[in-house]
Design a protein around this nucleic acid. Structure first.
Length: 744
DNA sequence: CTATCGCACTGTAGT
DNA sequence: AGTGCGATAG
């Protein structure tokens, strides 16, 4: 039998074998959650002979889905293809493509990411002649997304008295109108944003009982991973889907719920038992990952949270090291101490670099860390952050693909119409879009009849453009993703333009587009069917920064730099948590209520429990932000760890102040480890007095080499220079810190 | 229409 | 520190 010879404890086995009524598996950090889930699916398929297409398994990240699929393949052999395993968004998007016409969409609908939505919102705000400082696009998006997550349509929002009065007091009376226009615009462009994928699935099932029934019968077994991160809509959909068979198994840990900010609802976990009274609960409390000190320290912090389910996380592992705490002068000192410590552990304990992770609350903290790791010649990789698919040239290329697939995609149209430059400026674009809106025609039909609104050269250019799209469409219908993509890349002239750009930035853009074509190639070759460009785009639209991390990897072990959010589900021998400061972690922007603070605390809990062997916390007294030095105070979370589990690395600490945990001057010692020879360090640069620099000067920079000052500006008290470097393109430098030397 | 320059804003997290 | 936008020059 499949579970024989597999290392599983009694509760795990019980949980795996329970499949005839709802169940909830409360799985603490490091308790073998994924293991249970994968073997549960394997067990259903092999022992219960459930056909894979009757099983639906939902995860939150593509990465988790991929890993689970790999593990199942290992356990049962190669039959996971027909298994419905994927993220909420990808599975629901798949269903929506099948049933699109029920909702008035086509099966080629586009998916708008945040940037696309933002751009639509911006153009609406502009059209309505509203002030984008009051109607900040981010705020507007947040309001709309919030309403959508409460299952409110634009029309309902527009008519709702509470929403109206809220917006009135916030001085944003037009928000309802913007929402209405946004919804209309997306619908017309045959596009859905991330929220729409969930909402439309919910509506599809609620408005069409026969379709719901079809899927209820199809998905006889439903499993949900990371259930604590589901929002209300996601929960309602899976509740509906499992209403007949009630073979639903949810796995989660309330202590690791860190997505309330995007609508995840910790109470879903508590409500589940009410909605499914027959629920059997399993608690996986043994931690197989971390040492006793780490588990106990994590427990001592999380007990400050009032909202949580009772459980006892414990481990049979060794006691291990205490939690190290280091005080630093500023973020550069912090980065240096972390890189020194990594090097020391790497050398003395022979741990390869991939055993280390540096976790941060925010993305911008990576900059100083990166620099120090680079100086110390420690290989590293950054996970998340700016995604490959968010780069300009990639978005441009994807916009071409999207427009060929969906001729009504207005966002894609705006992006590509003058990329590469073909002489179509904003005036012409507006003419076309206004003509389309006025005559209630689609963008595409307007383009095909461009001779009515445009004259001479411009009309010819548009005609050529239309021809190009038509030719690409023909490719789309008969060829696979790679063939079509290559055709479009060349025919559009985008590839040629990038190829001819000989600056470093230009050639890296060219390489990026090649990389994208390469991805399309792999996609086409790995699949026998469903390998058209449409299928490729569907997959890519739901991909994020975290997913590509391993993609370009050259097998060299590297230290991982990531945010705590993206570290969820992973584990490392050594975990460094940088920036343990009030305002930063817990984040000042975040904590408006007790619930918010508790979420930050859970985030801290997640961070600590990533570690198998040791945790290093560091905090700085000063930190650069927006080019300014900010004073920082150690995080309250440090104080909350039971002192029994802490070791202070800086001996000079004392507890003089009652209010501030450490308000004495932090101890600073010279680096013990000698730096490897680094050419850049050999050049001894002195920062030139900013007053001596002026626009047009030829300069040399320590890191970027030779360049020319474009302009010098003084904004909000910081003097900045835009410098064009020969090898690195345009950079903005803070003149007070940048080490520039004037070349005569 | 396109290129360049100065200014202002942003800076939680991820599908 | 990077980006994006508007003003202005080309």
């Amino acid at each position: 039998m499949i579970l024989d010879n597999i290392d599983l404890n009694d509760v795990q086995i019980e949980a795996i074998k329970h499949n005839d009524s709802p169940s909830m598996i409360i799985a603490g950090a490091g308790s073998g959650k994924t293991r249970v889930l994968t073997y549960k699916i394997a067990y259903l398929m092999k022992e219960k002979n459930i056909p894979p297409y009757n099983i639906l398994a939902l995860t939150f990240t593509n990465k988790a889905a991929k890993e689970m699929s790999n593990r199942i393949e290992k356990a049962v052999g190669l039959e996971t293809n027909s298994l419905w395993l994927g993220t909420f968004h990808s599975v629901f998007a798949k269903i929506l493509r099948f049933e699109a016409d029920m909702l008035g969409f086509s099966r080629n609908f586009s998916i708008y990411d945040r940037d696309d939505s933002k751009s639509v919102i911006k153009s609406i705000i502009k059209e309505l002649n509203l002030d984008d400082k009051i109607y900040n696009p981010n705020t507007v998006i947040a309001r709309i997304s919030g309403a959508k997550n409460r299952l409110m349509s634009a029309k309902q929002y527009y008519e709702d008295p509470i929403c109206q009065s809220d917006d009135q007091t916030a001085k944003r009376p037009m928000l309802g109108k913007i929402f209405l226009m946004y919804e209309a615009r997306c619908f017309k462009a045959d596009a859905m944003d991330f929220d729409d994928i969930l909402i439309n699935t919910y509506r599809l099932f609620n408005q069409n009982p026969e379709i719901l029934y079809k899927y209820q019968e199809k998905f006889k077994y439903i499993l949900v991973d990371e259930f604590q991160d589901t929002n209300l809509i996601q929960y309602n959909i899976i509740k509906d889907l499992s209403a007949i068979h009630e073979n639903i198994c949810i796995v989660g840990d309330d202590a690791q719920s860190i997505y309330a900010f995007r609508g995840a609802n910790i109470y879903n976990m508590l409500n589940f038992k009410k909605d499914f009274p027959k629920t059997k609960i399993f608690k996986l409390e043994q931690n197989y990952r971390s040492t006793k000190n780490i588990v106990n320290a994590a427990n001592s912090v999380i007990k400050y949270n009032e909202n949580q389910m009772p459980k006892e996380s414990w481990t049979g592992n060794v006691a291990g090291d205490l939690i190290f705490i280091t005080s630093c002068i500023d973020n550069i000192d912090e980065a240096r101490k972390i890189s020194d410590s990594i090097l020391e552990n790497h050398i003395s304990k022979h741990y390869s670099y991939d055993k280390f992770a540096v976790l941060c609350r925010t993305n911008y903290q990576f900059r100083s860390l990166e620099e120090e790791l680079r100086k110390a010649n420690i290989p590293y990789k950054i996970v998340g952050g700016m995604s490959f698919y968010q780069r300009k040239e990639i978005k441009d290329m994807l916009a071409y693909f999207k427009f060929v697939i969906n001729h009504n995609d207005e966002e894609a149209f705006r992006r590509i119409i003058n990329m590469p430059k073909r002489g179509i400026g904003p005036t012409t674009v507006n003419k076309i879009i206004i003509a389309a809106h006025d005559n209630d025609m689609s963008i595409w039909d307007t383009l095909c009849n461009a001779q009515h609104i445009l004259k001479g050269k411009t009309a010819n250019i548009i005609e050529d453009f239309v021809e190009m799209i038509k030719a690409s469409k023909i490719q789309l219908e008969k060829n696979n993703a790679f063939e079509t993509a290559s055709f479009i890349a060349q025919r559009s002239g985008l590839l040629k333009e990038l190829f001819e750009d000989k600056t470093i930035n230009g050639s890296s853009r060219y390489e990026n587009v090649q990389e994208l074509l390469n991805a399309a190639k792999n996609f086409s070759e790995n699949k026998q069917e469903d390998n058209s460009l449409s299928d490729f785009i569907q997959e890519v639209s739901l991909l994020t920064g975290v997913d590509e991390a391993d993609q370009k990897d050259d097998n060299l072990p590297k230290v991982t730099l990531m945010t705590i959010h993206s570290s969820k589900g992973l584990e490392f021998e050594y975990v460094y948590i940088a920036g343990m400061e009030e305002q930063l972690f817990p984040s000042a922007l975040m904590i408006n209520s007790k619930e918010d603070l508790e979420e930050e605390r859970r985030l801290f809990y997640v961070a600590i429990t990533r570690a198998k062997n040791a945790v290093y916390l560091s905090h700085a007294s000063k930190r650069f932000k927006f080019g300014k030095l900010i004073d920082c105070v150690p995080s309250r979370f440090i104080k909350e760890i039971d002192p029994k589990f802490i070791h202070f690395q800086n001996k000079s600490f004392n507890f003089r102040s009652k209010n501030n945990f450490f308000n004495n001057k932090p101890f600073f010692k010279k680096n013990k480890i000698e730096k490897t020879n680094n050419i850049e360090e050999d050049i001894n640069f002195e920062a030139t007095d900013p007053k001596e620099l002026k626009a047009g000067d030829n300069v040399e920079h320590q890191k970027f080499g030779k360049g020319k000052i474009h302009s010098i500006t003084n904004s909000q008290g910081t003097i900045k220079a835009k410098v064009y470097f020969k090898d690195f393109g345009e950079k903005t430098l803070l003149l007070s810190f940048a080490k520039l030397r004037v070349i005569k």
